[in-house]
Design a protein around this nucleic acid. Sequence first.
DNA 1: GCCCCAAACCTGTATGATATGTTTTCTTGA
DNA 2: TCAAGAAAACATATCATACAGGTTTGGGGC
Lengths: 234, 234
Amino acid sequence: MTQEETNPGLVSAAIQAITQHIRVEGLGPGDLLPSEADMTRKLSVSRTVVREAFRSLSAMRLIDMSAGRRASVAKLDIGAMSMVIEHGVTTEQISVHQVYDVRRTIEMRTVALAALRRTDAEAAEIEKYARLMRENCRSPEIVMEHDIAFHEAIAQASHNPVFSLIINAFSGVTRRTWVIGWRTRATEEEQIKMIEGHGDIARAIIAGNPQLAAEHMAAHFDKSVKALIDAGIA
Amino acid sequence: MTQEETNPGLVSAAIQAITQHIRVEGLGPGDLLPSEADMTRKLSVSRTVVREAFRSLSAMRLIDMSAGRRASVAKLDIGAMSMVIEHGVTTEQISVHQVYDVRRTIEMRTVALAALRRTDAEAAEIEKYARLMRENCRSPEIVMEHDIAFHEAIAQASHNPVFSLIINAFSGVTRRTWVIGWRTRATEEEQIKMIEGHGDIARAIIAGNPQLAAEHMAAHFDKSVKALIDAGIA
DNA sequence: GCCCCAAACCTGTATGATATGTTTTCTTGA
DNA sequence: TCAAGAAAACATATCATACAGGTTTGGGGC
């Protein structure tokens, strides 16, 4: 909304009508929306228009659609967010460096929050990914996936879904640049040191020390950014 | 992408094909995409499917569409991002408080970057909004709009479009809660003090003092959040 | 060389048809 | 009486076609 309102066209109006319906009826995740035929009657437009509206909301993952079933309100999902970021990067309107600055800013906060708020299960999960990185240090791809899961778990443990949302939106970019950063760490020793950085973070979270956790996270990002710069990525 | 791949259906495939086209061809903002008819032939699906794909990308503001013209790659825009956030808030999957924590985190960084990187024109713009808030202190709606513009200008001056993107995505939520916070500031004196907080921030940016700017921003957010809590907003 | 207009092309919307998946209802058999 | 299963009602997925406007382009006239 906010900017959809001034958009011409029946489809935008239909999108607005649907989101408004969600708001007015106070619908939550899982609740069913009217069928396309209902909407067609209610808005006095063709099925085509209603369908494009539903489809658009589905593409943004604001609603779930599947054949035979009526659409339903979706659970919070990175959905569109990651597409926007990826679009920005692939069209060179956003640099990888800028993404990392945002990640650093946010993750210094999530890690501090995680140190304060994590449950024991969350702490164990975070520690698990740090360990898995160590154990698979010979397979970059696997290390990467655990790395991403590690940061995601920390965001989760911050207990603020908006942070999770944003961090996850960046994971696509991370996947496309991670290996490059890894390769600049020439020696195996350096690679192990980088992995151990995650261990430091995990321990600080488990110890419930937000200051220390934030410091380790900052150091980790500084090293990562340096690696990307060394690799010639702006 | 990233999660669209596993989605069944021709439309998702078409969306992927289009984004892939943008990537492979190295298209940038303003560049034209194939016509719907072209895509129809290329993908061997009906125009309906292609249209729904285009429309979805348009709803996310990854592409621009208008009658008679072929679609083009869009400039970076909050687009979908704000819709995701709003959806989260209206369906009560995100609390206003959580949004403010994220804003605080990010804006403490943008304000520091702004102090370091702002051009003179940007500094003047920021100062202008602070002044306009002071001059219109009797009209909450107007103060609010200048307040939002103030924070947006700071994000702009950080010279990292990702920050701008995120801050702007929150402006819808801000609009819906701002007045509530304002009302809890019972006396006119308190309201003026709150507005003066913006002046402090502006001056620190102009002075090029990132530390001070961040401190003022933190204080500003702490007061705002306190106001919302006093108003009973979780 | 310039202007104007028509043709070609494109998107926006509507309609109807068919295929297929899901839910509800009703029947039938134990 | 009740439960299993079939049929009907409902819903989305995709396709084909049509026509109304908006935009671009190329040609003709000057």
